[in-house]
Design a protein around this nucleic acid. Sequence first.
DNA 1: GGTATAGCTTACGTCAACGTAAGGGCTGTG
DNA 2: CACAGCCCTTACGTTGACGTAAGCTATACC
Lengths: 136, 136
Amino acid sequence: MTDMTDMTLNIREMCDAYQVTPRTLRFYEAKELLFPIREGQKRLFTKRDRARLKLILRGKRFGFSLEEIRQLLDLYHMGDQQHTQLLRTYEIASERLADMERQRDELIEAIDELKEQLKWGEKVIASAKNGQEAAE
Amino acid sequence: MTDMTDMTLNIREMCDAYQVTPRTLRFYEAKELLFPIREGQKRLFTKRDRARLKLILRGKRFGFSLEEIRQLLDLYHMGDQQHTQLLRTYEIASERLADMERQRDELIEAIDELKEQLKWGEKVIASAKNGQEAAE
DNA sequence: GGTATAGCTTACGTCAACGTAAGGGCTGTG
DNA sequence: CACAGCCCTTACGTTGACGTAAGCTATACC
């Protein structure tokens, strides 16, 4: 077996893998969302960074700010934290979960409503088309 | 019956009703998301404005930009549009709907995962507590 | 008439999340 | 060694969605 060393990606590979720009990755590092190791001055992104980036991108799609995401990430990465900090993180995550559930419910409702509107739109379009045909 | 005239709200009432600032309402008017009528130079928000504002605020919670929302609003308000414009609006709304459905699915998945993490967090917290008790 | 209250306009300020430009370093290749 | 190709840092620019301050206006009340 080819020594499947705990593969790291350089910045270019990382960008291609996740459809982001180098600037974005460096920005996330500056904001302490990612912690690539260094080889000389070049960044090497680990498996851990890849897991975190996935979560970051997902969080963004749900409208969370990077700061909120940073706090959430802590939850996924607490091994030897202090108890109180851990509790705080747990609370934050619980709130976030409630947010997400609310958002999900509202989203489901909004989807229904929009579907209704689209049905209505189809009717209008169809009748407009008929009107046009009649005018020809 | 007290003449239930098609009640309009002034800017203050509107703000209180929807938890937004006057600046926000003026901003939305400038961006042509709302169309309050004028009494002198004062704005009066109609039932239509209230319906639109609800949709705007919801759209925002889903991470849509004001411009995207503006296009969507057209769908809820097309009476005498031209056919092509109407079609375009319909398309935009359809895309938006697809977005929302994707978002919903992803959200549901993320909720599950976060729940898992929280369960795990509970375990860590519980065991940390035991350790502390044992140390006392 | 004075002034408090509410609303208005104009315009500059702010914050997040990057974009983009400028200049420097390392490595390999002809 | 010259030059290309990547990567790096520093730092100013940009966009969206308002915040905020300054100064004007109209109505209400004393």
